[in-house]
Design a protein around this nucleic acid. Structure first.
Length: 141
DNA sequence: GCCAACGTTGGC
DNA sequence: GCCAACGTTGGC
């Protein structure tokens, strides 16, 4: 199973807001970038990802699950934009900051570090395990 | 709030 | 099909 990372500005849509949606989860709408959309098209229901707070957070705060495959984005009249649905699975015991990630040599090639503008991105298996360990969650959560 | 990096758009 | 102009993202 592939792993992913989803970015959101906490002022716009935060981890707590997703937790508040419970098992119903929330549509990951608003993505208007082909690479990010293509990543969502690749996702399988049940796959896990990190939830990252951009701009005013700069840290990974929890693990999410894909609960619906890519479908048209209800916030766009343009049919080319699609999105998946997510639910919150588990919060990190301790948030893992971008600064911390940049300090780990094994994480230097993360898309998060290399291409800071891509809002939905793949995470390698090794990267997943290292960050789960830093965050204090089971990588199989 | 600034601005560098990046993606998209549209005139030619 | 090139590339200048423009818009957006997100770290700082």
């Amino acid at each position: 199973m592939a792993h992913w990372l989803f970015k959101s500005e906490p002022d716009v849509f935060s981890w707590d807001a997703l937790v508040g949606r419970g098992a119903a989860g929330e549509e990951w709408d608003g993505v208007r970038n082909y690479q990010a959309r293509n990543n969502m098209r690749t996702m399988q229901v049940g796959e896990r990802g990190f939830f990252y707070h951009s701009r005013t957070g700069l840290e990974i705060v929890g693990v999410v699950e894909v609960i619906a495959p890519a479908h048209p984005d209800s916030t766009s009249a343009d049919p080319r934009w699609e999105c998946v649905d997510l639910r919150a699975v588990a919060p990190f015991a301790r948030p893992v900051t971008l600064e911390e990630i940049k300090g780990v040599p094994e994480l230097a090639d993360m898309v998060l570090v290399r291409n800071s503008r891509l809002s939905v991105q793949p995470v390698g298996d090794g990267e997943w395990r290292i960050i789960c360990a830093l965050g204090g969650v089971d990588p199989a959560v």
